[in-house]
Design a protein around this nucleic acid. Structure first.
Length: 234
DNA sequence: TCATTAATCGCAC
DNA sequence: GTGCGATTAATGA
């Protein structure tokens, strides 16, 4: 598998710091794991041995609540970290589950290796710190959105987020999510998502081709949630 | 193609 | 808003 130095995921924290000669030995211990679509590779509550990076593919990260109700916490694409809260600190177990949304290749580092390299390379450690800070801030704005937005606004926000994160081609989002996934990320039920999507379709704001969704009118959608997003990153 | 899985919608609460 | 269940659409072996 491609070594980190030649990896094209420029946003990856490891890749960014791969020029440091001290990282070489560490990179030898990298493992590559292939996941089929919808395969779960982290189970909630399972002992955390290390941390994953999406090398190529898409992943959803979720927590399970009461009555098997899932809350999708975040999505990850090429170069992004998965399982980063299980790796360090006091918690010995993964607090989340992670599932591949399509055939996905993962890079894996054991937490001992990672700990050593973080103690060795300050710039990498610093990048990790920035990443955790951004994560925290994003999760705080998500808490607020889930609490204050209406269901319709949350679904719209989710659609815009998917567009921003994964992009669109020919007015169709580059991710294939089930209605339940949309619901689990927006904090509603599948039926609610279906109903809102169908009215959005009638209003000509959203498009559908087969199971794929597309945004037709970004402006109108953005306008509708603008009151919640005045000073926000996304 | 046919069987399986997902999406939709009406209806009761 | 929620959740069930019947119907219809999409998918894939």
């Amino acid at each position: 598998m491609a070594d980190c130095i030649h990896c094209e995921n420029l946003n990856c924290l490891i890749k960014k710091n791969s020029k440091d000669p001290k990282i070489e030995d560490f990179l030898k211990n990298k493992h590559t794991i292939k996941c089929k679509k919808s395969q779960q590779f982290i189970m909630e509550g399972t002992p955390a041995h290390g941390l994953f990076f999406a090398y190529k593919g898409k992943v959803k990260v979720a927590k399970t609540g009461i009555n098997d109700r899932e809350q999708i916490v975040r999505f990850a694409k090429d170069g992004e970290i998965i399982g980063h809260r299980g790796g360090f600190g006091s918690s010995k177990y993964y607090s989340i589950s992670a599932q591949a949304l399509e055939d996905t290749t993962l890079c894996y580092f054991s937490k001992d290796d990672l700990k050593n390299i973080l103690l060795t390379i300050p710039s990498l450690t610093f990048d990790f710190m920035l990443f955790y800070a951004d994560e925290l801030s994003e999760s705080e704005t998500r808490v607020r959105k889930l609490a204050q937005m209406s269901v319709r606004e949350r679904v719209i926000d989710t659609l815009l987020y998917m567009d921003k994160k994964f992009g669109s081609t020919d007015q169709l989002l580059n991710v294939l999510l089930s209605r339940k996934d949309y619901a689990d990320y927006s904090g509603t039920t599948e039926e609610q998502v279906i109903r809102i999507l169908s009215t959005l379709k009638k209003e000509g704001l959203v498009n559908a081709k087969g199971r794929k969704l597309g945004i037709l009118n970004h402006e109108a959608l953005r306008e509708e949630i603008s009151k919640h997003t005045f000073s926000m990153t996304r």
